[in-house]
Amino acid sequence: MRSFLTLLPLCFLTAVFALDLPQHRLSSADEGISQGTYDDLVRYAKYSSAVYQFICPHPIGNTLVDTFSNHFTHAHGFVVRDDDRKELIVAFRGSQQLQDMVTDSNLVLAPLSSHGVPPETAASSSVHAGFMIAYNSVSRTVISAVREELDVYPDYTVIVTGHSMGGSLASIASLSLKVNLPEANVRLFTYGQPRTGDSGFADLLDDVVGRNNLHRAVHTWDGVPTMVPQYLGYRHHANEFWQFEDPSNRTNVRKCSGQEDPACSRANFSTGINAAHFVYFGQVMTVDSTLCL
């Protein structure tokens, strides 16, 4: 079964040159989001893009603490320390290799089970089985790396981020890190994330990580966030930040209401992997090696 998130080289050119993405104009009363929130969305999109690079010694010019990967699931990412902003950034790569196709295609919802997450916390929560397997294959390494950094820098904020499938892994990781490191301030930023779990999982993220710490960005007509259908039991977590039209600026981004706002990208008919999936906040995802210098 072909992956719905497999990166197709032709899409890179399409993403750069496509000028006919559908436009969505909101009421003039909607003034967009704050400049600070917009700047954060731009910044963490760069980490989510940089993590695709084969070698990334200085992600966004900061200190590479550790990399993690699993040969069988091809889950991959890095942990970065930004001493100026007092942040630890955990970024997960999206689909890139053959094994990712298997992970993406496993649409079965399975009861949430992950290292350090008590059964009573995970009760009534189910997630995409493939995404959970992929995260669990690197979870101990991720938690250990972040814990060691927080032992030295206890006041640093933990940012978890990822694009496409990486966004789904990041959402599970944000819950896992918050449960395992309850004193940490954990924030989540995802880009083009497909639906990852059921309503129980969405509610659990809201409650444990905190709704104000959740940022799920969708670019215009990106078909991936709506590709996994709700009728299979899936539901997005809050909060969607929908860039409803180009160009990228704060006034063209709307903070949507709740978990599945019918006035935001949920209203889009999914066209699958399209040009919008590869461009987030001015960043052509996956291809910019200068982000690692």
Rank of each mutant, 00 (worst) to 15 (best):
Q259K: 09
A276V: 04
F278R: 04
V253W: 05
R211W: 10
N213M: 10
F269R: 12
G233I: 10
C264L: 01
Y280D: 14
A267Q: 05
M227P: 01
N252I: 06
G233L: 10
S257I: 12
A217T: 03
A217K: 00
V224I: 15
S270Q: 10
V228P: 15
V279K: 09
N268K: 00
E260S: 02
H236E: 01
E260K: 00
R250E: 13
E260Q: 04
Y231P: 14
S257R: 11
N239G: 13
D261E: 05
F278T: 07
W221E: 09
N239K: 06
W242A: 03
H237C: 11
Q230R: 14
N213E: 11
P229R: 14
Y280H: 14
S257N: 13
A276Y: 05
S248N: 11
C264T: 01
G210P: 12
H219E: 14
Q259P: 02
D246C: 07
R211C: 11
T226A: 11
Q230C: 04
N274C: 05
D222Q: 08
Y280L: 09
N213I: 03
E245P: 00
G258F: 15
F241K: 03
G272L: 09
R250H: 13
V228M: 10
E245D: 12
C256M: 12
G258Q: 15
E245K: 03
G223N: 06
H215F: 14
Y234D: 08
G272V: 07
D261M: 03
V279E: 09
N239F: 05
Y231M: 06
A238E: 08
P247R: 15
P225H: 00
S265T: 10
S270I: 05
Y231S: 06
P247A: 13
N212C: 03
H236G: 01
M227H: 14
R211L: 07
G258C: 14
E260N: 04
H215P: 09
Y234I: 05
K255F: 04
F244S: 15
Q243S: 08
R254P: 02
V279A: 02
Q243A: 11
A238S: 13
P247Y: 15
Y234G: 02
G223Q: 04
V228L: 12
D246P: 14
T220K: 12
N213V: 05
N274W: 11
N213P: 15
G272T: 06
L214Y: 14
A275P: 13
P225Y: 00
E240K: 01
G233W: 07
H219M: 12
E260I: 00
A276E: 07
V218F: 00
R216H: 09
Q230H: 09
A263N: 15
T220A: 13
Q230F: 01
M227T: 03
N212H: 12
G210M: 04
F269V: 09
V279Q: 08
S257G: 05
R216C: 04
V218R: 00
S257F: 12
V228F: 10
H277L: 00
H219Q: 15
R250D: 10
G272N: 07
Y231A: 01
T251L: 08
E260G: 00
